[in-house]
Amino acid sequence: DLSALRVEEVQNVINAMQKILECPICLELIKEPVSTKCDHIFCKFCMLKLLNQKKGPSQCPLCKNDITKRSLQESTRFSQLVEELLKIICAFQLDTGLEYANSYNFAKKENNSPEHLKDEVSIIQSMGYRNRAKRLLQSEPENPSLQETSLSVQLSNLGTVRTLRTKQRIQPQRTSVYIELGSDSSEDTVNKATYCSVGDQELLQITPQGTRDEISLDSAKKAACEFSETDVTNTEHHQPSNNDLNTTEKRAAERHPEKYQGSSVSNLHVEPCGTNTHASSLQHENSSLLLTKDRMNVEKAEF
């Protein structure tokens, strides 16, 4: 173990290094160091905050020279020094078990990766560091076993998940096959086929009936047209017969005018059967003409 005197000496050296690497504005270890034209180094955030307070150039807090945003430059070497100082402080805390008085939040800088452990060898070769390295080497064999167990647990979990997924996939297939086998029997399929065939026959029977009705309507229309044509021909046949009657009536009127007047009046009210309204109107006109002729003949006879 380190003596108290040596611990104090190391602590004083760390404090001196820390004062050199402090920012003059925030009085902390410089984060993202930036250098000016006057070779003074500050935190990048502190300098941008200072420049944004005034429009135009501002003055350096140490030498009062003008500073602009374009004049600022990043210093990589200074950032490396800060990183190495942080590593020294971490090693000091691990070796002594004491917390550094002016320690900052170094938890963000710590890294437990194997590459980081290899890099620590180049920091300080001390008894405390050696003991700590031995402890780490002793704890390393235990870690692979834990990793193997965790991997086995994960693989077993994956296997159970896969088996569950396969079961879920197989179950719908089985149910679907069961439904297909038990849903419709052979008799049901035959009945469905016969039902479809009967429906098709009914459709075939319905369509000819409609065509037959249309044919019957067409035949009825044709018969009505033929009947009207026969009526017209009958009226045409009746007209010459009426003319013959008129000639006979004229002759009778010349011989017996008194008797014919009474008979002509009675004939006005008689309509021949089986004739249309057109034929009756023609008869009325003929009878009126005959009456006028008879009157003329009677007057001539009187004179």
Rank of each mutant, 00 (worst) to 15 (best):
D1Y: 05
V7N: 05
E9M: 12
V10F: 10
V10E: 15
N12I: 05
A16H: 01
M17V: 08
K19V: 03
K19G: 04
K19F: 01
K19M: 04
I20L: 06
L21E: 15
I25S: 06
C26H: 13
E28F: 10
I30D: 09
K31Y: 13
T36I: 11
T36P: 00
C38I: 15
H40W: 05
M47R: 12
L51P: 08
Q53H: 07
Q53G: 11
K55S: 07
P57T: 09
C60S: 15
C60H: 14
P61T: 05
P61S: 03
L62S: 11
N65I: 10
R70M: 11
S71I: 13
S75K: 14
S75I: 05
S75N: 12
S75R: 11
S75D: 00
K87C: 06
K87H: 07
I88A: 10
L94C: 02
E99V: 01
N102W: 14
N105Y: 04
S113L: 14
L117I: 05
I123L: 10
Q125G: 08
S126Y: 15
M127Y: 13
Y129R: 09
K134F: 01
K134C: 01
R135F: 02
R135D: 04
L136F: 04
L137E: 04
Q138G: 07
E142Q: 09
E142R: 10
P144R: 07
S145Q: 01
L146Y: 02
Q147R: 06
Q147G: 08
Q147N: 11
T149S: 05
T149Q: 04
L151C: 14
S152C: 06
Q154D: 05
L158K: 11
L158S: 12
G159M: 04
L164C: 13
K167N: 11
R174K: 10
S183P: 06
S186K: 04
C196F: 00
G199W: 00
D200V: 05
Q201W: 01
Q201T: 14
E202K: 11
L204V: 06
T207P: 01
G210T: 01
I215C: 14
S219K: 05
S219E: 10
A223Y: 01
C225Q: 06
F227E: 15
S228L: 00
E229L: 01
T230D: 13
T233R: 07
E236S: 01
K250W: 00
A252T: 04
E254R: 00
R255M: 09
R255N: 12
E258P: 11
Y260K: 15
Y260V: 11
G262Y: 05
S263I: 15
S264N: 15
N267G: 09
L268R: 03
E271N: 03
T275Y: 01
H278L: 02
A279R: 12
H284C: 04
S288V: 14
D294C: 14
M296I: 08
F303V: 10
